[in-house]
């Protein structure tokens, strides 16, 4: 598997990523070491349950800032995201294929 495994339970695809993927169903309160990946902190504590395959933030991401996985931008934070928080459609949105924005612009 490519990437950096965090305590056998989560995967960071590339060291600079701001989100990691759960390799198991992880419970709220789980602590994971991120010291090895150049984060500004040693550990991340999950603030909610993270289902297998879903993502959590390993550092704070401000609203509007890029969310990064695979060393690439996968979208933008639609509101501030704290370390350990689940990152999904409720707080991360796509920057591409936004015909809704184009339609709004046309109607404005």
């Amino acid at each position: 598997m490519k990437g950096i495994v965090l305590d056998d339970r989560a995967l960071l695809m590339v060291e600079s990523d701001t989100v990691a993927t759960a390799l198991d169903d992880l419970e709220r309160g789980t602590e994971l070491s991120v010291a090895a990946v150049g984060s500004d902190r040693d550990r991340v504590t999950l603030t909610e349950d993270i289902a297998f395959g879903h993502k959590f933030a390993i550092e704070r991401i401000d609203a509007g800032d890029p969310v990064e996985k695979y060393g690439e931008r996968i979208g933008s934070a639609s509101r501030p995201i704290e370390p350990g928080e689940w990152v999904h459609t409720h707080n991360c949105e796509s920057d591409r294929g936004r015909g809704d924005r184009t339609a709004e612009g046309a109607n404005a």
Binding site: R73, I74, G75, V87, T89, C92, S94
Partner: peptide
């Protein structure tokens, strides 16, 4: 895809 953890088309594409 979303239930399986994929959030955006960019993320899906990169995978």
């Amino acid at each position: 895809n979303k239930e399986g953890g994929l959030t955006t088309i960019e993320e899906k594409s990169l995978g």
